[in-house]
Design a protein around this nucleic acid. Structure first.
Length: 418
RNA sequence: GGAGAGAUGGCAGAGUGGUCGAAUGCGACGGUCUUGAAAACCGUUAGGCUGGCAACGGUCUCCAGGGUUCGAAUCCCUGUCUCUCCGCCA
């Protein structure tokens, strides 16, 4: 969330930003709630003060009757305060983060293409999509997956399992080359309050999040949640530089209502594994670290020899927390239509959230003046199973339906092709 | 899963109904002393919200949420976590 004082002092900017982000929030209403909150607090404080000063020693019986009344009115005021605060924070948390000056303003499709590594291969045969390729080799089984775990679940088998493991190991090795050696395996579920810290809403009818019945727990959609939680309410020591981690977890997503060609096969599934990059840093370092994470992602995908485009996400598609977001989209046959052989589909995403998440999760560091300040947080995908195998299979297939394993991956698996 | 014990400031650890945001010790920081350091001594040492130009105030926070009471770190209930014992288990 943003600082209410900042919103007050930059109201026009915030209102414009909400428009750019296609987010409907009543900023003037929010400021009124803030006024209400303050006035109410002053009233409550003065009542409390009165009661407190009378409670320092035993009062006379006549006095007690008065104090009872006072105490009662405080309870009523406290109840009102709860309601005001609930409304206030509900509204405040809807205000999206600021937007980087270079992020394109516009709808989801208005992203900027920053870089393309190569032209997609022109196949001199009709290329298959990953589902055909994997199913023909018996490497993926959606039928059994659905039987066991419902729609869109699957069993990965044999070479695909080895490929997934090799990808993770490959990702870890690239991170290590970039001096990211701290690696955490996180819980795959977390308290709902932790999801909210990260800007997810596990309450109500979520289309995205699996809640665990009878528990205050949800399955995580990304280890960003657990990593943020790890540092929630902590003062992080950044005196020796930023904290940059790798985190491994399963990711669970409901993906409510997504059917059809563009989410075919492994593209949109309920469960996958992810090697994530997560960073906490001082405000002055976050842009540079964002570039660094982006470059690591490029290295990873370069090594896989997959055609891709790097895009700067447009304002309407940034979500609530990101200040700037880069996605890498790989060329995929499955994304094609009658006109095009294939098209680009997201495989990684890295966000700079500034102090938006840290403010809610209360993650601080000590600045040069010894003052505690909110840190900046960033995250980015290193490796994601399911989507990377799509890109590998569809771009490295031959006429016989074999999939060639790129050289960089061969170090981590015995297969040269599958 | 059962039985018991516990959760207090950066850390350790007092505090079982009123003047307690909280003794004491350690650590940290500042100062005196010293050529410098150590020791000793003196002092400072939570965060949020909020009022005020400021000086300086108000209030909240002793795991969390409820409750009892004129008044709660202290009493009651629920939950979370930690430890010990038993059970079960990879």
């Amino acid at each position: 969330m943003l600082d209410i004082k900042f919103i007050r002092e930059n109201t026009d900017l915030i209102i414009q930003n909400c428009q750019d982000r296609r987010t409907k929030v009543d900023i003037h209403g929010l400021l009124k709630l803030d006024d209400q909150r303050k006035t109410h607090q002053q009233l409550l404080d003065s009542k409390r003060s009165e009661l407190k000063s009378s409670s320092k020693s035993k009062p006379t019986p006549e006095k007690i009757a008065q104090l009872k009344q006072l105490s009662q009115s405080i309870k009523e005021l406290e109840e009102q305060e709860r309601q005001i605060l609930e409304k206030f924070y509900d509204q405040l948390s809807k205000v999206p983060n600021l937007t980087h000056k270079d992020s394109p303003i516009g709808e989801e499709a208005d992203f900027n293409v920053l870089y393309k590594n190569m032209e997609p291969k022109k196949f001199d045969f009709t290329p298959k999509d990953h589902l055909e390729l994997f199913e023909s080799k018996g490497l993926v089984d959606f039928k059994s997956g659905s039987k066991v775990a419902g729609h869109k679940s699957y069993f990965a088998k044999n070479e695909l399992v080895h490929l997934n493991n090799a990808l993770i190991q490959y990702g870890i090795s690239v991170l290590a080359k970039n001096s990211i050696t701290d690696i955490y395996e996180t819980p795959d579920f977390a308290l709902k309050s932790m999801l909210q810290n990260a800007g997810f809403n596990p309450r109500g009818d979520s289309d995205e999040i699996y809640n665990i019945e009878g528990e205050e727990l949800s399955l995580i959609g990304t280890s960003e949640i657990t990593m943020l939680g790890y540092y929630a309410n902590e003062v992080v020591d950044l005196s020796k530089g930023p904290k940059i981690f790798a985190a491994i977890s399963k990711c669970f997503r409901k993906e409510g209502g997504s059917y059809g060609r563009t989410s075919k096969g492994l593209y949109r599934v309920h469960q996958f594994s992810k090697l994530e990059i997560f960073a906490i840093c001082k405000p002055e370092d976050s842009e540079q670290i964002h570039e660094k994470i982006k470059n690591i992602e490029l290295q990873i995908v370069d090594g896989l020899e997959i055609p891709y485009q790097l895009i700067d996400i447009a304002s309407a598609d940034l979500g609530g927390a990101a200040y700037r977001k880069y996605d890498i989209e790989a060329y995929m046959i499955m994304k094609g239509d009658e006109q095009n052989q294939g098209d680009y589909g997201e495989i990684t995403s890295t966000s700079n959230c500034l102090d938006y998440q840290a403010r809610r999760a209360n993650i601080k560091y000590v600045d040069a003046n010894g003052k505690k300040q909110f840190a900046h947080t960033l995250n980015g995908t290193a490796i994601v199973t399911s989507r990377l195998p799509i890109a590998l299979a569809e771009n490295h297939q031959d006429q016989d339906g074999n999939i060639h394993i790129p050289k960089a991956l061969q170090e981590f698996t015995k297969f040269k092709q599958i």
